[in-house]
Design a protein around this nucleic acid. Structure first.
Length: 571
RNA sequence: GCGUCCGUAGCUCAGCUGGAUAGAGCAACGGACUUCUAAUCCGUAGGUCAGAGGUUCGAAUCCUCUCGGACGUGCCA
C-alpha cells in the first residue's frame, strides 16, 4: 500500500506539470503533517519555497496549484492560508479505507533504494568485563535501527564487533595468575574477571611493572603462545556466554560476531592495499594517512613503528571485509560521539581506497553517573543485569498490586516485558547527542511518556476485545470506520501517518521519532477511551469503534516491536 | 591552540532537513473511578529557546561572534 503522503505528492506533481513544464526540483515538493488540526491533515509549503521559480506571488501560485490538482479519491478540500501554505483535508472514506488496509496489507517502501546489504555495527562491548549501563545506548539504539530498517525492506546484517583482542587480555592474564579466586570464578566467571581487572587497575597505579607484564602477556597471546591463547579463549568463551545471557533478556541478537580477533589476520593485506594505493605513507617508522586540508582531520596512524596495528586499522579491515563479502548498500556504526573523529578518518580512507558504500556514524552522547563517565575502571558501574533485575522487580510489584489474581507465571512475564520495555524506551524516546546522566528514577519510570503507558493502551484494547467477544462481537475490518467525534478522526490520521514516521526514522536513524509518534497515538486513544464508550454506544458504532481500537492496538504493537519492546494482553 | 557535540518550562527532554500561537513527561495545583483496566483522563500554572549580531517574506532551527559545559586532538580502544 502506498504511503499517503506520497499519493498526495503524486497529485501535486500532476498539478505542477499541468501549469508549468520544465520544473524539476521535485525535492522541494514536500508533503508534511499539518502542524495543527485546524490546518487539515497534511500541508505543504511548496508554493512558498518554489514561487520564485515560477515567478509568481506565493499566494497566487498556491491558488493556481490547488485548482490544478486532478479529480481524486484522496483529498476532500484544499485551502490556501497565511503567506501561501496549502492545507490539505483528506476524505473521511479514504482515511478510513487506509486505516483498515493498514492491518491487512503491507506498506510499500519500494520507492527507496533497498538493494544491497546494510551492515549495522552496534553494542560491540569490550569483553571480559560485565556489561554496564554505559553499553545500553549503542545496544538498544542499534537493535532498534536494525528492526526499523528490516521493516522498511532493507536486507540488514547485525554485527557485533566484539572487543576480544585488546589490551585487557594481557592485564587479565597477569591478574588471573596472581589473584584468582577459584571458587568465585567457577560461580560467576565474568564477575571474577571484572574483580581481577579492577584490581589490576588499582595495583598498576602503584606499580607500573604490571603494565609491562601485561603487554608482554598480550604479545604472547598475539604471537600464538599456547598457554596464553588457551586462557584467552577461555576468557572469551565465558564472557560471550555472559553477554549472550544479557542480550537474551533484552531480546537483542546479532547475525554475525566478527570480533577484533577475526580481523587480525586481515590487517596486513589491508595495510598493503592502502600502501599500494598510496593512501598511507611512512613517517618516523609508522604508517600514516594524511587528509586534505578541507577535510579538517588529523593524520591517522595505521601501523605503529613497532609493527602493531591500531583501532583505525581494525575498523578499516571491517570495511574492506564488508566490501569484499557483501554487495553493500550502507555501513552503519552506532557509537558514542567521542569516536566521531575516528570514524570520519576511517570513512575518508575507505572512500579513497574505493571501498564503495554509504557510511553512517550514528552518534549519541556519553552516559555519566553522579557526574562521572561510567567505566569499569572508574568503579562507578551499574551492571546491566542489576538494572534489568531492578526494572523487573519494580514492574512485578506494580502488577502484583494492580492485578493480584493473575497467575504467577503471567505476572513474571508481564514484569519482564514491562520492566525491560521501560528501560529501553527511556533511552529510545530521546535522541539527543548531548550527554546524559543516568538516573534510576528515569530508567524505571512507569508513568507518562513511557513504554508501560503504550503497553497499557494496548492491554486496554485487548481487554475491550475480550469483553466484546463474550458479547458476540468481533472486529471486522471489512466494515467501515466512521468518525463520529473529532478524536476518532485524529486517531485514524495518526495511524495513516505511522509508516511515514517509520520511513523517516529509517532515513535519519532516529528511533525516537517512532516513540514520539506512538505516544501521540496512544494519548489520543486514551482521550477517546475515556470519553467515548466503545461497547456501550449505538449499535452501528460498536463495530466502527472496535475496529479503530483494534487497529490502534496493532499499530502500537508494531511500533513497539520496531523499538524492540514487547506487549502483553493484560497488565 | 585547533576540532566535534551540547545549552529550550523548577527537573528530564521533543522540536534543530527554515514555516503558522515553541510542545511533552515528571514535579505543583484543581477536578474525574457503583460505568469497557485510574500504570488513565480533563483542567490550571509555568518560557527574553544561553547572549549579541546577520541571512530570509519567516529563525529555537542556517551563518558569525561571545559566554558556559562535555569530549576529542600522531603511535590506547
Amino acid at each position: 500500500m502506498e504511503l499517503v503522503a506520497r499519493r498526495i505528492e503524486g497529485l501535486f506533481k500532476k498539478a505542477v506539470q499541468k501549469t508549468e513544464s520544465g520544473f524539476n526540483e521535485w525535492d522541494k515538493l514536500v508533503i508534511q503533517p499539518a502542524s495543527s488540526e485546524e490546518f487539515g491533515d497534511y500541508q505543504t509549503n511548496f508554493a512558498l519555497t518554489s514561487a520564485r521559480f515560477f515567478k509568481k506571488a506565493p499566494k497566487v501560485f498556491a491558488q493556481e496549484l490547488i485548482s490544478s490538482v486532478p479529480e481524486n479519491k484522496v483529498i476532500e478540500k484544499l485551502e490556501v492560508a497565511g503567506p501561501g501554505f496549502i492545507n490539505i483535508f483528506l476524505k473521511n472514506e479514504f482515511v478510513s479505507g487506509v486505516v483498515a488496509g493498514s492491518v491487512s496489507e503491507k506498506w510499500g517502501f519500494s520507492h527507496k533504494n533497498l538493494s544491497g546489504v546494510v551492515v549495522i555495527d552496534y553494542s560491540s562491548p569490550n569483553i571480559a568485563k560485565p556489561m554496564h549501563v554505559g553499553h545500553l545506548r549503542t545496544t538498544i539504539i542499534g537493535d532498534s535501527i536494525k528492526r526499523i530498517m528490516r521493516y522498511v525492506g532493507y536486507e540488514v546484517i547485525a554485527d557485533n564487533h566484539l572487543g576480544d583482542w585488546g589490551t585487557q587480555f594481557g592485564k587479565l592474564i597477569v591478574g588471573y595468575r596472581m589473584w584468582l579466586d577459584k571458587d568465585s570464578y567457577e560461580k560467576d566467571p565474568v564477575r571474577e574477571l571484572e574483580r581481577i581487572y579492577i584490581k589490576f587497575q588499582e595495583e598498576s597505579e602503584k606499580d607500573n611493572v604490571l603494565e609491562e607484564l601485561a603487554r608482554g602477556e598480550l604479545k604472547k597471546v598475539q604471537s600464538g603462545d599456547e598457554e596464553n591463547l588457551k586462557l584467552w579463549k577461555e576468557f572469551v568463551t565465558v564472557s560471550v556466554a555472559g553477554i549472550k545471557k544479557i542480550y537474551s533478556r533484552m531480546d537483542v541478537d546479532f547475525d554475525t560476531w566478527y570480533g577484533e580477533s577475526f580481523y587480525h589476520s586481515l590487517m596486513p593485506e589491508v595495510v598493503e592495499e592502502l600502501l599500494k594505493k598510496e593512501i598511507v605513507k611512512e613517517d618516523e617508522g609508522a604508517l600514516v594517512a594524511y587528509f586534505d586540508e578541507e577535510e579538517n582531520l588529523h593524520p591517522c596512524i595505521i601501523r605503529k613503528k613497532d609493527g602493531a596495528y591500531l583501532y583505525a586499522t581494525s575498523d578499516l579491515a571491517t570495511v574492506k571485509f564488508k566490501n569484499d563479502t557483501y554487495k553493500m548498500n550502507k555501513a552503519v556504526y552506532v557509537t558514542d560521539d567521542r569516536q566521531q573523529a575516528h570514524f570520519r578518518q576511517v570513512f575518508s580512507i575507505a572512500k579513497k581506497a574505493g571501498w564503495d558504500m554509504e557510511f553512517a556514524h550514528v552518534v549519541f552522547g556519553i552516559m555519566s553517573f553522579k557526574g562521572v563517565t561510567i567505566s569499569t575502571r572508574g568503579g562507578n558501574t551499574i551492571h546491566l543485569s542489576n538494572l534489568l533485575d531492578e526494572a523487573e522487580k519494580r514492574a512485578y510489584d506494580v502488577v502484583n498490586e494492580k492485578n493480584p489474581e493473575l497467575p504467577e507465571d503471567e505476572k513474571r512475564n508481564i514484569a519482564k516485558v514491562v520492566g525491560i520495555g521501560a528501560v529501553k524506551y527511556a533511552d529510545l524516546s530521546q535522541n539527543r547527542t548531548s550527554n546524559i546522566e543516568f538516573s534510576w528514577e528515569k530508567a524505571l519510570n512507569f508513568d507518562g511518556n513511557t513504554a508501560p503507558y503504550l503497553q497499557y493502551s494496548y492491554a486496554r484494547v485487548q481487554s475491550v476485545l475480550r469483553r466484546a467477544k463474550e458479547a458476540g462481537f468481533l472486529p471486522d475490518i471489512t466494515k467501515e470506520i466512521t468518525f463520529e467525534t473529532g478524536i476518532e478522526k485524529q486517531i485514524a490520521v495518526a495511524i495513516v501517518r505511522f509508516p511515514e514516521v517509520v520511513e523517516k526514522a529509517a532515513d535519519y536513524y532516529k528511533p525516537n521519532l517512532i516513540a514520539e509518534h506512538l505516544f501521540d497515538l496512544a494519548q489520543k486513544f486514551s482521550t477517546f477511551y475515556n470519553s467515548c464508550p466503545i461497547l456501550k454506544c449505538e449499535e452501528d458504532m460498536v463495530i466502527s469503534r472496535m475496529n479503530l481500537a483494534y487497529i490502534t492496538a496493532e499499530t502500537i504493537k508494531l511500533g513497539l516491536s520496531l523499538l524492540g519492546i514487547g506487549t502483553v494482553e493484560r497488565m
